[in-house]
Design a binder for these strands. Structure first.
Lengths: 145, 145
DNA sequence: ATATGAAGTGGGAAAAAGTGGGATGAGAAT
DNA sequence: ATTCTCATCCCACTTTTTCCCACTTCATAT
C-alpha cells in the first residue's frame, strides 16, 4: 500500500526520486498518466492492467467514456526506474500537472497509486478540501462504521 | 484499550516516547495519519488495515472520496517504534498538527487510537468542548443507546 | 534514606537515501 | 562521412535517517 507525502527535487533532466519506501512495491517499470485535479497518476504495471481493463469495459459509443479514455490512455507512458530509484517525467506530462520549470514535485501515496503534484497546487487543494474534510468525514461516517 | 493523557518531549530528531502503558498494545509498527480537529491519529497496524480496507473500496472517480482518500492515505506513514519505545513524527505530519518547533506533544488515548496534539490547541479544544459537553452528550444520547 | 529498576531523554556513528553531473553511445542534421 | 545533439547509464558526493549506547529522572521497595 502506498501512503505518505514527500517533496522531492525535479532535477535539470526531469528526474524525480521515488521515496525509498515505495520502490519495492513499484518495481522498475511504472506507468505515468494524466490524473484528476491537475496531478499525475503513477501506477505499477499490475495496477495499470487492472485499471485499463475497467476502463475498456465501458462502451466507446458514449462520448463521455471516449473523452475520458483518451485522457487516461493517451496520456500514459511506461517509464523505467533508474538504478538509484528515480523516474523520468516526460515533458508533455509535466505540462499536464503544471510542473514545467518547477524544481520540486510533491509525491502523494494514495493506496494503489502515486500522485505527482505541483507544490502550490497541492497546498491550495489541501486548503480547500480541508475545510470540507469534516463534512466529508461526517458523510462517510454514515456509511463506514 | 488506550486511555489517559500524557505530555512528552518532541526531541530534536522529532522523536516522541510512547507511554510505557501503551507499548504492548501498539506493537512495534504503527500508522500515524492526519486526524480531525488539528491532531494526528495513531493506529495499530491491525486497526489501520480495517480502516484502509473501507476506504480503498470507494471509487476514485468521485471527487469527494478522492479528496478524503488523499487526506487519509497521503497523510499516513508507517512508523517503527525504536528499541526504547519512541515513534518518529515525520516533518509533514508535524505541520498538519501545528507541532513544528514545538518541544512537547500531548498524547491522548482514545479507545482504539492515540491522538497527538499541540499543547495549546488541545487545551483550547478542551475549554470549548467542556462548555458544550452537556449539549454534545444530549445529542449523542439520541443516537447511541 | 538509599538502592533498584523502569521510563524517558540525548546524542554520536554508520548506513541509506537523495542529488548532481560526466561519459558513452545512438540518432539526426549538415 | 562527420559532427552535433540528446538521452541513457553510471559513478560520486552530500544530506538525512537509522541504529545503538549512555545518561537522567522518577517511582517503588527494602
Amino acid at each position: 500500500m502506498l501512503i505518505g507525502e514527500y517533496t522531492h527535487k525535479i532535477d535539470e533532466k526531469g528526474r524525480v526520486s521515488l521515496p525509498a519506501k515505495w520502490r519495492k512495491e513499484m518495481g522498475n517499470k511504472i506507468i505515468i498518466t494524466r490524473g484528476l485535479d491537475n496531478c499525475l497518476f503513477v501506477f505499477t504495471s499490475k495496477e495499470w492492467i487492472k485499471l485499463s481493463a475497467e476502463l475498456s469495459s465501458s462502451s466507446w459509443l458514449k462520448s463521455d467514456t471516449r473523452a475520458f479514455n483518451r485522457r487516461i490512455f493517451g496520456g500514459a507512458t511506461e517509464v523505467e526506474i533508474d538504478t538509484v530509484g528515480r523516474m523520468l517525467l516526460p515533458e508533455f506530462l509535466k505540462k499536464e500537472a503544471s510542473l514545467v520549470d518547477m524544481d520540486k514535485a510533491v509525491l502523494i501515496g494514495v493506496d494503489n497509486r502515486i500522485e505527482v503534484w505541483n507544490e502550490v497546487v497541492w497546498s491550495d487543494y489541501k486548503n480547500i478540501t480541508d475545510k470540507q474534510a469534516d463534512e466529508i468525514a461526517e458523510k462517510i461516517g454514515n456509511t463506514i462504521r
